[in-house]
Design a protein around this nucleic acid. Structure first.
Lengths: 348, 348
DNA sequence: CTGAAAGCGCTAACAT
DNA sequence: ATGTTAGCGCTTTCAG
């Protein structure tokens, strides 16, 4: 980038005004006469001048940039969150710096990078900062809002949905429907989302006098969830085989269904009822038609971005934790109430 | 952002060295004695100092930032492209500024914003710049690489895959398999990807003496593709109903299959063969098992980012157009060769 | 190897 | 309303 750029000085020369007149002309509410502004704008157009955002940021000490940190876009739910949030922030005149959390877990570098970049705020999508990292960002005075994950550090704002309630609904619904052997397919075990969904689920089962029949871990990933499903249903004896599956997110629920149907030759919902969590767009597609707990994406984004913007303009505003309700979406991956399970495992 | 930040001056004071010594200590290959560097680093740690990237960019005239412009992440294929590209660039030490092209098509503002941001390069995912916009960016001296879309402006580098060849394969394969009435489900009609795929497709059909039996437009979107499929198959007379469908991308192909199976009660592949384009992760899932043309994502990203980085370091390097081969993935959405089509439209 | 000094391109008082 | 001046926090000559 050694290309010499056109500066406000150049424009000033050509327009025959002072350099600050140029600056003023390009800032919204500054006192410039229409005449000078016009002269400046003409000269600017002629030279192809653009104000240098970096120089402006340096002096105003505001980058108008927000960092969005995410881990993976493999899960369409997060791609959706990202797009929504980005568009919103972009409309508010912010720039978006995108960071992916490294797969190797070297998150400290990202945090460091974040801080150096002078971003005015950080939006985290389902990323857990540890204590130390969270404090580092907070101590630096950068507002952070975490979406869909929580962190044990009260200094940070978080918005998520009611995972416990969702899990509770799933557990209770399956049990009340006559499912007898209900399995749980966990996300990342130590994640708060997973823990809350799991606890809620167990509490829901308990209302019907049941406990979790089987448990495996899919780490919120498609392929891992396929494996876990195989393990969960790897028995030949019907009495040890689950007749329902609650997965901690939709991606895993769909992986479960695919594996059940295609590999294990078990039918959904006749043989096994399946419930997910999130309600991604594709969960509603006919081939999946997944019963799930819908997270209010729109609301989450609105709340999170509002919160972030508010923290930016009012640094002393106390952190908030917002929990939004989830909505059960009953589709065709669960049996209608009362129907007994039917096994029809193929023999090939 | 009125929070007063710790500057290199503060660190210099504490460490008892000059401000430039601090600067040197934080830049990789600068002549500083280990002793001074240590003093500086200690002081820096103590104060929680981070070099201000903005100030650095201003003076070095290099922001180490690349803009990624995309239109939508609704299509998982693009989410995947974005993640791959971002991670790669991030590993190269670049920051990523993410821009979404506004839905209302007001792309000029984004272009302007891009330029002001002093990004060193622009990576466009499936976004068409018009002549004027392309020139604007190029004239400013910012290298641009467009992935998976082409633009009629020779001053810009582009990397895509062989759309014509892919379309050709699809057309020829379906025709040679015995399909008689092959329909085309177009993406955005005027997009180059669509035009090339369509032309190749027709050429492929022609080798078997066929022409495109029916045509409709899905704009590369799921819901639009469902509608288009309904229109395409809205006949009662078997001889006017297509027996195969080639969609310009996987998302539409899947939409087609879903609609065919669930609404129209036509089976795939027995009643209708379906081929897509892209090979998204989910296309391989059992429930879709979509025959498609695989784009070499990994390669596309590698080539595109290499090209971009190269243009950044060698501004005079001429633009290149790279076309990568696609690979047919034959799955279960197409009939094995020779099997005659079977209609089994349900009557509900 | 290190410090002093001169800016990068812009905004924001401060005068006029 | 406009020009002048002083930096924003840093890198980079240039001396020493």
């Amino acid at each position: 980038m050694k290309r010499k750029s056109i500066t406000s000085r150049d424009v000033a020369h050509l327009a025959g005004v002072s350099q600050s007149a140029v600056s003023r002309s390009f800032s919204q509410a500054s006192s410039v006469s229409e005449k000078t502004r016009k002269k400046v704008m003409d000269a600017a157009r002629q030279l192809g001048y653009r104000p240098n955002t970096i120089a402006r940021s340096l002096i105003t000490r505001s980058s108008r940039t927000i960092a969005v940190v995410t881990y993976s876009l493999q899960n369409p739910f997060y791609a959706y969150l990202l797009e929504k949030a980005s568009r919103f922030l972009q409309e508010q005149g912010y720039h978006l710096l995108l960071f992916f959390a490294p797969k190797n877990g070297d998150f400290d570098m990202v945090v460091d990078d974040l801080i150096r970049s002078q971003v005015e705020g950080v939006l985290m999508l389902a990323i857990t900062l540890n204590q130390h990292q969270a404090k580092e960002v907070a101590d630096f005075g950068i507002p952070v809002v975490i979406i869909n994950r929580t962190v044990e550090y009260s200094g940070i704002s978080q918005v998520g949905s009611d995972n416990y309630q969702g899990g509770y609904w799933a557990g209770r619904y399956l049990a009340s429907q006559g499912c007898q052997r209900i399995a749980y397919l966990a996300g990342i075990p130590e994640s708060t989302t997973n823990r809350q969904r799991e606890e809620g689920f167990k509490a829901g089962l308990a209302t019907e006098g049941q406990t979790c029949f089987a448990y495996d871990v899919g780490y919120y990933r498609y392929d891992e969830a396929c494996d876990a499903t195989r393990r969960l249903f790897s028995t030949r004896r019907p009495e040890t085989m689950p007749d329902a599956l609650f997965a901690a997110n939709d991606l895993m629920a769909i992986a479960g269904m695919e594996t059940l149907r295609d590999e294990l030759h078990l039918s959904v919902p006749e043989g096994v009822s399946v419930i997910g969590f999130d309600d991604m767009a594709m969960s509603a597609w006919p081939s999946h038609s997944l019963t799930t707990l819908q997270q209010p994406v729109e609301q989450m984004i609105v709340k999170a971005t509002e919160l972030l913007l508010n923290h930016i303009s009012h640094p002393e505003a106390p952190p908030e934790q917002i929990i939004l309700p989830v909505t059960p979406k009953i589709r065709r991956s669960t049996r209608p109430v009362g129907n007994p399970p039917i096994y029809n495992r193929g023999d090939k």
